[in-house]
Amino acid sequence: MTSEEILFKISDLEVSYGSIAAIKGISLQVRKGEIVTILGSNGAGKTTTMRAISRLIKAESGSIMFKGHELTRLPAHKVVSLGISHSPEGRRVFNILSVEENLLLGAYTKSKVDQEILSWVYDLFPRLKERKSQLAGTLSGGEQQMLAIGRALMSQPELLLLDEPSLGIAPILVKAIFAQIKKIAAKGVTVLLVEQNARAALKLADRGYVLEVGKIVFSGQSEELLNSPRIQEAYLGKQKK
């Protein structure tokens, strides 16, 4: 599925919270059809990067290009209609709206809700269909994660940003959700996945970047990362021999 066409490119991005620099000049690119993961521990700047892409926080400097559009000049609500959708850390579902209302809000920028997309999302996550008139806040953590991903798919994105879809979710559901991410990518959706669960992420992704305190310290194909002693020790829990 992967082509050579670069869909998305970050160059020298810097982001700071007040005087504290959170992202210190990172560059990365994603080709059309790829699954790319950004790994890193807590506080490495993964979520900050995602929020900068979606324009929820300002970039200090640098550029974020998507299909010829410079995102750093756009307000947050304009990003989704370009074809980028963001399933945020902590899921952030609209807890007192119904599951279906959440999904329909995902298609807010569309003049009409595409019923095919809705039934595709329900096929991917049948539990959402079973609970479509339930309030989102009553779902389990894993179901809320499914809802957050489904909601992000409703705008028919070309690039799907997934921030920690495994966070606080039972291992069995993590497996199920990652399997569905693979299906989503197989439909031609490019995926940028931020994860702390490095093993699961690398099994899924084509390539990965490793972020440490605001800088990219390592990048490569997933197998390279899986076999790198340094990555194994720091992120995959293997001891040095």
Binding site: A76, K78, V80, R92, T109
Partner: peptide, 9 residues
């Protein structure tokens, strides 16, 4: 913020 991610101004 979640509303902005939906494209809501």
């Amino acid at each position: 913020d979640a509303a902005r991610l939906m494209g809501i101004n």
